[in-house]
Simulated scan of single mutants.
Amino acid sequence: MASVTDCCSASGGRASIAINGVNVSPRSVSVTPTNFEREVKSNQDGTIYTINKPMPAEAEMTLSDSCGLDILGLMGCPVDVTIDLWDVRRKYLFTRGVIVGRPKLNTETGEISGLKITANRVIITTY
Protein backbone atom coordinates (compact mmCIF):
# COMPACT_ATOMS: atom_id res chain seq x y z
CA MET A 1 0.00 0.00 0.00
CA ALA A 2 1.29 3.43 -0.92
CA SER A 3 1.86 5.99 1.80
CA VAL A 4 -0.05 9.26 2.01
CA THR A 5 2.99 11.11 0.65
CA ASP A 6 2.82 8.96 -2.52
CA CYS A 7 -0.51 10.59 -3.35
CA CYS A 8 0.37 14.21 -2.59
CA SER A 9 -0.22 15.23 -6.20
CA ALA A 10 -3.70 13.64 -6.25
CA SER A 11 -6.73 15.90 -6.14
CA GLY A 12 -10.37 15.14 -6.70
CA GLY A 13 -11.31 11.65 -7.77
CA ARG A 14 -13.66 9.00 -6.47
CA ALA A 15 -15.96 9.49 -3.48
CA SER A 16 -18.41 7.49 -1.41
CA ILE A 17 -21.06 8.68 1.00
CA ALA A 18 -22.64 6.81 3.90
CA ILE A 19 -25.65 8.22 5.73
CA ASN A 20 -26.22 6.60 9.13
CA GLY A 21 -24.01 3.74 7.94
CA VAL A 22 -25.98 3.14 4.73
CA ASN A 23 -24.07 3.70 1.48
CA VAL A 24 -25.63 5.99 -1.11
CA SER A 25 -24.29 6.59 -4.63
CA PRO A 26 -22.95 10.11 -5.10
CA ARG A 27 -22.76 11.77 -8.50
CA SER A 28 -20.81 14.68 -7.03
CA VAL A 29 -19.98 16.22 -3.68
CA SER A 30 -18.55 19.59 -2.67
CA VAL A 31 -17.32 19.99 0.93
CA THR A 32 -17.03 23.22 2.93
CA PRO A 33 -15.39 21.83 6.09
CA THR A 34 -14.96 24.99 8.17
CA ASN A 35 -17.55 26.34 10.58
CA PHE A 36 -16.68 29.97 9.92
CA GLU A 37 -16.23 32.37 7.05
CA ARG A 38 -13.28 34.76 7.09
CA GLU A 39 -13.54 38.13 5.41
CA VAL A 40 -11.05 40.94 5.00
CA LYS A 41 -11.86 44.65 5.07
CA SER A 42 -9.77 47.76 4.73
CA ASN A 43 -9.37 50.70 7.09
CA GLN A 44 -9.32 54.25 5.68
CA ASP A 45 -5.51 54.25 5.80
CA GLY A 46 -5.30 51.08 3.66
CA THR A 47 -4.44 48.65 6.46
CA ILE A 48 -6.55 45.54 6.69
CA TYR A 49 -8.54 43.76 9.37
CA THR A 50 -10.35 40.44 9.30
CA ILE A 51 -13.78 39.36 10.44
CA ASN A 52 -14.71 35.77 11.30
CA LYS A 53 -18.38 34.97 10.85
CA PRO A 54 -19.80 31.71 12.24
CA MET A 55 -21.26 29.44 9.56
CA PRO A 56 -22.26 25.78 9.59
CA ALA A 57 -19.88 23.31 7.99
CA GLU A 58 -21.59 21.77 4.99
CA ALA A 59 -21.36 19.56 1.94
CA GLU A 60 -23.49 19.80 -1.18
CA MET A 61 -24.43 16.38 -2.51
CA THR A 62 -25.83 15.18 -5.78
CA LEU A 63 -27.00 11.58 -5.43
CA SER A 64 -28.12 8.81 -7.73
CA ASP A 65 -31.73 7.78 -7.17
CA SER A 66 -31.92 4.14 -6.11
CA CYS A 67 -34.31 1.60 -4.67
CA GLY A 68 -34.95 2.23 -0.99
CA LEU A 69 -33.50 5.76 -0.91
CA ASP A 70 -35.86 7.66 1.42
CA ILE A 71 -35.08 11.35 0.92
CA LEU A 72 -37.92 12.53 3.18
CA GLY A 73 -36.73 10.18 5.93
CA LEU A 74 -33.15 11.50 5.62
CA MET A 75 -34.36 15.07 5.96
CA GLY A 76 -36.05 14.35 9.31
CA CYS A 77 -33.86 13.59 12.30
CA PRO A 78 -30.15 14.37 12.68
CA VAL A 79 -27.88 12.00 10.76
CA ASP A 80 -24.24 10.98 10.68
CA VAL A 81 -22.74 11.39 7.21
CA THR A 82 -19.32 10.11 6.17
CA ILE A 83 -17.81 11.39 2.93
CA ASP A 84 -14.80 9.34 1.87
CA LEU A 85 -12.52 10.76 -0.83
CA TRP A 86 -10.65 7.62 -1.87
CA ASP A 87 -7.98 9.06 -4.14
CA VAL A 88 -6.82 11.74 -1.71
CA ARG A 89 -7.32 9.43 1.30
CA ARG A 90 -9.45 11.80 3.33
CA LYS A 91 -12.71 11.36 5.24
CA TYR A 92 -15.16 13.99 6.42
CA LEU A 93 -17.51 12.97 9.24
CA PHE A 94 -20.53 15.21 9.78
CA THR A 95 -21.88 14.08 13.17
CA ARG A 96 -25.48 14.76 14.16
CA GLY A 97 -25.87 16.80 11.00
CA VAL A 98 -29.06 17.90 9.31
CA ILE A 99 -29.84 17.42 5.64
CA VAL A 100 -31.37 20.60 4.24
CA GLY A 101 -32.40 21.96 0.88
CA ARG A 102 -35.11 21.21 -1.61
CA PRO A 103 -34.41 17.95 -3.41
CA LYS A 104 -34.83 17.99 -7.17
CA LEU A 105 -35.11 14.68 -9.08
CA ASN A 106 -34.15 14.57 -12.74
CA THR A 107 -36.32 11.68 -13.93
CA GLU A 108 -34.32 11.28 -17.13
CA THR A 109 -30.94 10.74 -15.44
CA GLY A 110 -31.99 9.65 -11.94
CA GLU A 111 -29.96 12.48 -10.42
CA ILE A 112 -31.10 14.02 -7.11
CA SER A 113 -29.68 17.50 -6.55
CA GLY A 114 -30.39 20.31 -4.10
CA LEU A 115 -29.24 18.54 -0.91
CA LYS A 116 -26.79 19.77 1.73
CA ILE A 117 -25.58 18.20 4.93
CA THR A 118 -24.86 20.80 7.62
CA ALA A 119 -23.31 20.29 11.04
CA ASN A 120 -21.77 22.22 13.90
CA ARG A 121 -18.40 20.72 13.09
CA VAL A 122 -16.73 18.21 10.85
CA ILE A 123 -14.12 15.64 11.83
CA ILE A 124 -11.47 15.30 9.11
CA THR A 125 -9.20 12.26 9.00
CA THR A 126 -6.53 11.14 6.56
CA TYR A 127 -5.34 7.61 5.96
Results as ranks from 00 to 15, higher is better:
Pro54Arg: 13
Asp45Leu: 04
Ile51His: 07
Pro78Thr: 02
Pro56Phe: 05
Pro78Gly: 03
Asn43Phe: 14
Ser66Leu: 10
Phe94Pro: 00
Ile71Lys: 01
Asp65Val: 12
Pro54Cys: 08
Leu72Gln: 09
Ile123Glu: 13
Asn35Pro: 03
Leu115Ala: 06
Tyr127Lys: 08
Thr95Val: 11
Asp84Trp: 03
Ser16Gly: 08
Lys53Val: 11
Ser30Ala: 13
Tyr127His: 08
Met75Tyr: 06
Ala10Leu: 07
Asn43Lys: 15
Gly110Leu: 12
Asp6Tyr: 07
Thr82Asp: 13
Met1Asp: 12
Met55Leu: 09
Glu111Ile: 09
Ser28Gly: 07
Asp84Ile: 03
Lys41Asn: 10
Asp80Ala: 04
Ser42Lys: 14
Cys7Val: 12
Thr109Arg: 01
Val100Phe: 05
Arg27Cys: 04
Asn35Gly: 09
Pro54Ile: 06
Leu93Cys: 04
Asp87Trp: 09
Ala2Tyr: 10
Phe36Ala: 10
Thr50Val: 09
Ser25Ala: 14
Ala119Trp: 00
Gly76Phe: 10
Ile99Phe: 14
Ala18Gln: 13
Leu105Glu: 03
Ile71Glu: 01
Pro26Ile: 00
Pro56Asn: 07
Met55His: 04
Thr34Lys: 15
Ser113Tyr: 03
Lys104Gln: 13
Ala10Val: 07
Ala119Met: 07
Met61Val: 01
Ile99Met: 14
Ser11Trp: 07
Ala57Asn: 00
Leu72Glu: 07
